[in-house]
Design a protein around this nucleic acid. Structure first.
Lengths: 333, 333
DNA sequence: GCAATAAATGCAAGCGTTTTTATATATTTT
DNA sequence: AAAATATATAAAAACGCTTGCATTTATTGC
C-alpha cells in the first residue's frame, strides 16, 4: 500500500543500464554517451526519482551540508552575518545546519558535537570565545572551520573580520576630537578577545595618543542586549563620562534610550558611537553614528573561504580583514 | 597516516561483543545486561567513538533533523519564531536545517527540494503563501509539516498562529474608539492569506461594526521593510487617514519615522498600532502600541506539534491558536 | 534438576548511494 | 585489418549503521 520510494536501482532497471551509469548522469559525470544520458534522464523524469542525500553522504563522505554556529539568531548582528553565509552557501549548493549556542543555555560543546556527528563538510563559527575544549573538539574532527565576526587570537583558525583595533581607535579619536576627556567604553564580555583584546586596545591607544590617562572605571562590561544598555546608562553618566563607544547596536540603542528617557540631550550632552551599523542605528532618534562593518560580506566571505577549504583549494590568506568605516549620524557632534 | 575513523565495528571488536550490542548501548536499548553496557561504554570512551549520524540515518530512516523554512532570517519576527523552534528542537534532540527562501531570490520549490532530499524527519514552514506546486511537493514526500505564523486556508496542514481576524479587529476598533474615521490598513503582500483574508477581514469587520464605509484607497499593500514603511507615509497621509493599523513592526517603525521626520506628531496627529510586539516597538519614540503575538511560543508550539507528528502520536488539534492581546504604548491616544 | 519461558546477544541483510576495478565497445594509428 | 588506445558501461564492494530473526544464556516454576 505504502508508496514505494524510488531508488537509483529502479531507474537503472527501467532504463536498462547499471546503477553506476545512473549515478554518473545524476552527478553530471561527462563520461556518458549523450543518448544514454537522454534515456536515463527520461526515466528519472518519468519515475520522478530523487536521489537520497543521506545515502549519498554515506557513500561519498560528502554531505553538502555545513554547520553554522550562532550565539543568538534574534540578534541582528549575527542574523546579518547568517544571511551572507546563507546566500553563498546556497550558491554553492550547500545546506546549512544551524545551531544556536546561547551562552550557557545550550553548551557549545554539546551543540558542536551534534553538528559534527552529522558529518558536515565544514563549519562556520560565530560568537563564543574559543576555549580549549572547543578547540580540541574542532581539531579531532578534521572539519574545516571559518570564524565569522569572531577571532582566534592564535591565528590557527581561518576567520573573517574587520580591524577592530583600528576601528575602535578611530571611533574613540573622533570623540576626543570634539573635546571629550571622559569617554566610556561600554562593551560585551571582555572574555571575548574581540572586546577584551582588540577593541579595548583600540580604545586605549586612542586615549594614549591624546595623552589621556586610561581610567578603568570608564570601562563597562555588560551583555549584548537592549535592557542591559538601558540599565547601564546611569552608571556611565555618574562615572562622569561625556561620551561612549559602544560595541553592540542593541546595547547602544538601549543606552541611548536610557539617556533620552531621563532627559539627556544627545549629542549635546553626551555623544555616542556604536559598532555594527545595523538598521537599528537608523531606527532610533537621534540616529546613531556607527562604525560600519560589512556584516553581510563578512558572512559571505567567510562562507566563500570555507568552500575553498572544503575543496582543498590553495588558500592565500586564511585570516581576512574587510574594510570598515565610520558612518556619521546624529549621536555625535 | 590518516587517522582512521573509529566505527561501531572497532568498538564491537575491542569490547568482544557484536555490533548489534554496541548499537543497543548507544541507542539506550534496555535489552543489554548492565555489565555488558559498562564494558561497551568503557571501550567507547577509550576509543572516543562517535556514531556517524549519516549512517544512522540511512539505516534507520530517521535523521533527527528537521527542516525550517524561513523567509528572512534578519526579520526579527521570523527570527523570534526560529528561536522558539530551535529551543524545542534542541530539547528533543533534533538538528535544524535552516533554509531561507527570500521571496523570489531563492525559489521556495528549489529550496524545499534540497531540504527534502536530505531526508528531514519533519518540516516547519514559515512565511510564503503555499501554492499548489508547494503543496504538491509537500505531499509527495510524506514528511510531516507544521506552519508557524503562517496559515493554510484549506486547513489541511497543521499550523500555529493567533486569531488574526480578531486581533486586527480589536486593534481597528481601538482606533475607532478614539474618534478616527479614516483608518489606513498598511500591510505586506495581500497574496498572503494572513493579510489578504484574515487581517483584512478583521479590519473590515471593525469598520462595519462602527458603520464606517470600507474604503479601498485606505488599504496600502507594500513589503515588510523599514524603507517601505518610510516610503508609504506620505501616501497614507495624503489619503486622509488619521490612524493606521500596520501588519509588521519593521514596516511600522519605518512608517512612524517617516511621519516623525516630516514633523508629524504621534499620537496627537496620527495614531499607529502595529502587529508583532517585537523589541522594535520599544526602541522607537514614541513606543508603539501593538498587537502582541507570543512569537517565541508560536515557534515552540509549532515545533512541539511537529515532534508529535514525527512520533506518530495522536494529535488532538492540528491547528492551534495562541492567545493575543494588545499592548498599549505611546503611539495611540 | 529439567522443561518452559524470558532475557541477552549475535548474525547478516539491508539502507541507497558512490566509486574502484574490470570489461566491453568505439576510435585511432599504422 | 590488426594492434593500440580511448571511451562507455557494468559489476560489486564499500560507506557505518540498525534491526528482524535466530541463537544462546539466564531465570523461573514445579
Amino acid at each position: 500500500m505504502e508508496k514505494q520510494t524510488i531508488t537509483i536501482y529502479d531507474v537503472a532497471r527501467e532504463a536498462s543500464v547499471s546503477m553506476a551509469t545512473v549515478s554518473r548522469v545524476v552527478n553530471g559525470n561527462p563520461n556518458v554517451r549523450p543518448d544514454t544520458r537522454e534515456k536515463v534522464l527520461k526515466v528519472i523524469e518519468k519515475l520522478d526519482y530523487r536521489p537520497n542525500a543521506v545515502a549519498r553522504g554515506l557513500a561519498s563522505h560528502r554531505t553538502t551540508t555545513v554547520g553554522v554556529l550562532i550565539p543568538d539568531i534574534t540578534n541582528i548582528f549575527y542574523a546579518s552575518l547568517a544571511r551572507g553565509i546563507n546566500d553563498v552557501a546556497t550558491m554553492y549548493k550547500y545546506n546549512i545546519i544551524l545551531a544556536s549556542a546561547d551562552e550557557g543555555k545550550h553548551k557549545v560543546n554539546t551543540v558542536l558535537e551534534s553538528i559534527l556527528a552529522k558529518q558536515v563538510d565544514g563549519l562556520i563559527y560565530m560568537g563564543q570565545n574559543i576555549d580549549d575544549s572547543i578547540r580540541k573538539e574542532l581539531d579531532r574532527s578534521k572539519t574545516p572551520v571559518v570564524l565569522a565576526g569572531t577571532v582566534d587570537p592564535s591565528g590557527k583558525i581561518g576567520s573573517v573580520n574587520i580591524d577592530y583595533v583600528a576601528a575602535v581607535k578611530e571611533a574613540t579619536a573622533r570623540l576626543i576630537s570634539t573635546g571629550n576627556q571622559h569617554i566610556a567604553f561600554v562593551t560585551g564580555p571582555l572574555s571575548d578577545p574581540i572586546n577584551g583584546q582588540y577593541r579595548l586596545k583600540g580604545y586605549q591607544t586612542a586615549l594614549a595618543d591624546a595623552k589621556i590617562a586610561y581610567d578603568e572605571s570608564l570601562v563597562f562590561e555588560t551583555e549584548y542586549s537592549y535592557r542591559a544598555g538601558e540599565a547601564v546608562w546611569d552608571a556611565v553618566k555618574h562615572a562622569g563620562a561625556t561620551a561612549a563607544v559602544i560595541t553592540d547596536d542593541e546595547l547602544a540603542v538601549g543606552f541611548l534610550n536610557g539617556g533620552i528617557d531621563t532627559g539627556a540631550k544627545i549629542p549635546e550632552d553626551f555623544e555616542i558611537i556604536t559598532s555594527n551599523n545595523t538598521i537599528l542605528t537608523e531606527i532610533v532618534r537621534p540616529k546613531l553614528t556607527s562604525i560600519a562593518q560589512p556584516l553581510y560580506d563578512i558572512g559571505a566571505v567567510a562562507m566563500r573561504l570555507l568552500t575553498k577549504m572544503m575543496n582543498k583549494e590553495e588558500i592565500e590568506q586564511n585570516t581576512v580583514m574587510l574594510p570598515h568605516s565610520i558612518i556619521t549620524r546624529n549621536s555625535t557632534k
